[in-house]
Simulated scan of single mutants.
Amino acid sequence: MHPLLARLRPSWLRHTPDCLLCHATGGDLPICTGCEAELPWLGGHCVICALPLPTEGLPCGECLKRPPPFERVEAPWRYAFPVDSLITRFKHQGRWPLGRLLGELLARHLEHAFAEGLPRPAALLPVPLAAPRLRQRGFNQAQMLARWLGDELRLPLRSDWLLRVEDGPPQQGLDAAARRRNLRRAFALHERAEVRGLHLALVDDVLTTGTTAHFLARLLKRAGAARVDVYCLARTPRPGDA
């Protein structure tokens, strides 16, 4: 086995687990090579926000017109079957092994990106949940992903630097304008957060319109952060795009 892959494997995966999708046996992770190949890997995409595009290496029109406060989004997949189902089951049904599997694959994706020249951040910051939502769900999926990534990539986790101070309706199902209204005063920076001059990476499960990432990156930049990237599992296409 390649030394990098051996280092990326946590202790709970140091055996030959069954594939969590088709239940085939064997493999380094609980997914077989056939199912892994069939995941909706992100092909051509915007070099800034990772919006799926028919071409590679170019920014999308929206990022050209209004550059976002974050520098780059890294996501392995389009938000499509079966990744959408796996994320939903992890996020809303507490299927943590599915989330851990996706986190392991995201860690591999990021290791490759770092090897290709993506700067490593100084710390990982999970997108926060408001207290009522956290009590209802019982866990913050972004924080779990960030903790797994931090362990695998040897990056520090700063889970208390970002605060969700207002709890509006869930972002899922809202259009872009409603998402912006919903989040305008939703976030704050902890008084003990020391972000000045740092390269930071936000961690979330899915990037849809990018509104949450926009507000959080702007908050960090205004506090003096030098660079903000976004790491997530999947990027949604534009409505109507294949």
Rank of each mutant, 00 (worst) to 15 (best):
T211E: 13
A226H: 00
G117A: 06
C60V: 08
W41F: 14
K221M: 08
T33V: 10
H23A: 14
V165M: 04
V195R: 00
E71I: 02
C22A: 10
E62Q: 15
L58G: 06
P67V: 07
A201R: 09
G94S: 04
L174T: 02
T88C: 05
A201F: 00
A178P: 05
P128Q: 03
I87H: 05
L163C: 09
D18K: 15
A217F: 05
A107E: 04
D84Y: 01
L86M: 15
G43M: 06
E104F: 08
M144R: 15
L183W: 03
L118W: 01
E194T: 08
V165T: 11
C60S: 07
G34W: 13
W96A: 11
L64D: 11
P128L: 01
A217T: 03
L202K: 07
L58T: 14
E104V: 08
C46H: 06
A122W: 00
G138T: 11
R147T: 14
G99Q: 05
C22N: 10
L4F: 11
L8V: 02
P3G: 04
L198R: 15
L86C: 07
Q172T: 13
W96D: 04
D28W: 15
A188H: 05
A234T: 06
C22P: 12
A80E: 15
P67T: 03
I87V: 09
R9M: 13
R184P: 08
V73A: 05
C232G: 07
A186M: 06
R7S: 12
A213S: 13
R133H: 11
M144S: 13
R133S: 09
R147Y: 11
I87G: 08
A122R: 00
C63D: 03
T88P: 01
G173Q: 03
A177P: 05
P97V: 01
R192A: 13
H23D: 14
R179P: 05
R137E: 04
P128M: 00
R135N: 01
G43L: 05
R120M: 03
L51T: 13
P128G: 01
E74H: 12
C19G: 05
Y79I: 05
P121H: 08
F215T: 00
T212P: 10
P237L: 10
A178E: 13
E152W: 15
G197L: 07
L220I: 06
P76M: 04
R164D: 02
P170N: 09
P30N: 09
V83E: 02
C232N: 10
F187R: 08
R137I: 02
A193V: 00
G61S: 14
Q141V: 04
H112A: 12
V228Y: 07
F114S: 01
L145K: 13
Y231V: 04
A113D: 09
